[in-house]
């Protein structure tokens, strides 16, 4: 019996709260719209309040009280009125600042003309040195900041360029490999063709083999072998690894291949050994095998 009553009470409470919240929400939505209208923290009333005081006569009177006499020369005042062409959007920083800038510039020009007609000096001559508003130390800081900004910009530019170049080079590389693969395929194809041709003709061309056109013979088929490979002695036919050799080997030899391969690559298998034992630029530069305890030995020798 107790529970339902409790629930009903709760419901009642919620209902009443709800009403209050509803009221609040209305206010809040109003306030939101207000704050949206201006972001810089100063909220305006949407409508001007009616009871605000505006005593035009009093204001004018006060102005007449403080105003300088009419016939005061412009040189005392130095003030210029500039008409703004159009309304500026306050929240658009760039436009706003630009409008201020143009206003100031226009004013400066007019003032300058006036001063010129009076024959008064305007800008300071270049040899007139005097205390400035901002100290030299401060201006140094400003300069430094400008410089660093410029440098940063340049660096970013460079980075971007490098990135683009990398992308480009990748593309080129991909194209190259593609081309190479294509070339290889073509060559194989041509060999096959030649073989077929030979078979079809019943090895008739056997006799005049040398006269047969071998498309792969004179082209770039063997070019690679003539290329120098790094880390391989000039006379080493195994190419430092004897991979070609093992690749050609029969399947039965696979088991002892590893040891053999290594040994072959190290000690050679066939061919002249003499060239292989000569130093090349790479082996000369290799300092791994040098004695590291040399310094200590030197010291000992000194003593």
């Amino acid at each position: 019996m107790g529970q339902p009553t409790k629930e009903s009470i709760l419901y009642d409470e919620e209902g009443s709260e709800d009403d209050e919240m509803g009221d609040m929400n209305v206010e809040l939505s109003e306030s939101e719209s207000e704050s949206d209208s201006d972001e810089e923290g100063d909220v305006k009333l949407l409508e001007p309040s009616k009871k605000a005081i505006y005593n035009r006569e009093g204001l004018d009177e006060k102005r007449q009280d403080i105003i300088w006499p009419e016939n005061v020369g412009w040189i005392h005042r130095l003030s210029i009125d500039i008409t703004q062409e159009q309304e500026v959007d306050v929240n658009d920083d760039l436009k706003r600042e630009a409008s201020f800038y143009t206003q100031a510039l226009e004013g400066t020009r007019q003032a300058f003309e006036k001063l010129q007609s009076m024959g008064l000096p305007f800008l300071r001559p270049p040899d007139y040195y005097a205390e400035m508003v901002k100290t030299d130390a401060h201006m140094e800081k400003v300069k430094r900041r400008l410089l660093t900004e410029q440098k940063e910009m340049e660096e970013a530019d460079e980075r971007r360029k490098a990135r683009e170049a990398k992308k480009l080079s990748k593309e080129i590389q991909a194209q190259k490999t593609k081309e190479r693969a294509k070339q290889k395929k073509d060559e194989i194809e041509s060999v096959k063709k030649w073989r077929k041709q030979r078979q079809q003709s019943g090895f008739a061309g056997d006799v005049n083999d040398g006269e047969l056109e071998l498309p792969f013979e004179d082209s770039k088929a063997f070019e690679r072998s003539s290329k120098r490979r790094p880390g391989v002695a000039p006379g080493d036919r195994s190419g430092g690894k004897a991979r070609q050799f093992s690749g050609k080997g029969k399947k039965g030899m696979d088991k002892k291949r590893k040891g053999t391969e290594f040994k072959n690559s190290k000690f050679g298998f066939g061919g002249r050994k003499g060239m292989r034992k000569q130093n090349t630029a790479d082996t000369t530069d290799d300092v791994r095998a040098f004695n590291k305890g040399g310094m200590a030995g030197n010291n000992k020798r000194k003593r």
Partner: peptide
């Protein structure tokens, strides 16, 4: 704000209309 000027030179006053 990168400008600098003489300390105490008389400013021109430019007002919007």
């Amino acid at each position: 704000l990168t400008g600098n000027h003489l300390r105490g030179s008389r400013p021109l006053l430019s007002f919007s209309s």
